[in-house]
Design a protein around this nucleic acid. Structure first.
Lengths: 189, 189
DNA sequence: TTCAAAATTAAGCATATGCTTAATTTTATA
DNA sequence: TATAAAATTAAGCATATGCTTAATTTTGAA
């Protein structure tokens, strides 16, 4: 209902598109404003700096990527399977999810002078969140033995790469969930 | 020996670093020059436009990524295995390879107005090169059944994602080659 | 040693950028 | 309808950018 909030949402949506397309530095505030059909002044009425737009998007992204460690530790295999399924389903059904996913990855390469962003990035580091879960899965014999960090990199790297391809070429066919799980699951037991 | 060629190489090396770090648009010609310890004028003495620097790097990248389809078709499993091993070894031993790898991926997201780049990108499209090889591997029963394009996306997406992580955090442990192969190999036969 | 070619720089032009400011329009409520 | 708050714009400042130009230094062969 609030007109201001609607506009802000719209601006964030447009900004996400441009950031993904051109990167942080390649995105001009003028272009965000132009694509949204408003003046630069209005953009800076809602966001005090360019970095603030970026920061708000990162915050939204962090929220979307957070895992529930407690549940995950109870059933590592099941939780990972559901996570992969969930990501793939949303990649198919919701283009803006894919964009956010790719955006969140690009963030990690973007050097922006914001202490706040650095903090967010730490909280968002996928391996940091997942390694304990993978260790638990290995302890149970559900996941294959080996360097748990490397396992984490393998599966989430794969998901990341696939998501990127999907965003770049939307009719890219997604792999089966099982294939991805074969990266990490212990098939010898 | 040729001093000009040496300088050009150096400039390309520096430019690659900056392009990876800040993206195409975020990279200023001034910064490339500054990091190389030369004037802007000299940079434009060797490259007539900013895009030309980018283009030369893409050309080098394409050369590094090209596969030998003829040999690949003769032994799909073996060729893929060697490719993965080769990439991982070079990721470990040669940081600039990783940078080039990530750069080549970023190119695909960068909209640069160069017909030449578009042509290069087609020739560089990994799935276009690999799908015939994967189909042959499936025909032989070496690779698992399923959408060959999706299989291609799975394995090269994984490699891509892992390479990105490696470039971002150089002490990231790389997964075992076998784990990656489990994405695509037919274990039921 | 000479001197033309090659390497290099300093200065600057035109435009794009992040962001501000003051003014104007729209909205909603009393 | 009157009016204060909210939304929006137009114009512009300071700086950064891609790239050019004219001049200077370095190099290497005769």
């Amino acid at each position: 209902m609030d007109k201001g909030d609607e506009r802000k949402k719209q601006l964030l949506q447009v900004a996400l598109d441009v950031f993904i397309e051109k990167g942080y530095y390649g995105t001009s505030t003028r272009e965000i404003a132009r694509r949204a059909g408003v003046s630069s002044g209005l953009l800076f009425h809602y966001f005090n700096r360019k970095e603030s737009i970026y920061l708000e998007l990162v915050k939204i992204g962090v929220e979307e990527m957070r895992i529930d460690t407690e549940i995950a530790m109870e059933a590592p295999y099941e939780y990972l399977l559901q996570t992969v399924k969930h990501v793939f389903e949303r990649l198919e059904s919701n283009p803006s999810f894919g964009k956010m996913f790719v955006f969140m990855d690009a963030v990690q390469y973007t050097t922006v002078n914001e202490k706040e962003i650095e903090l967010l990035l730490k909280s968002m580091d996928i391996c940091r969140q997942w390694i304990p879960v993978i260790l638990e899965g290995q302890r149970r014999g559900e996941f294959r033995a080996g360097n748990s960090h490397a396992l984490c990199v393998a599966i989430f790297g794969a998901i990341q790469g696939i998501a990127q391809e999907k965003v770049r070429i939307p009719d890219t066919p997604l792999p089966e969930t099982d294939w991805l799980m074969d990266l990490i699951v212990n098939r010898t037991r």
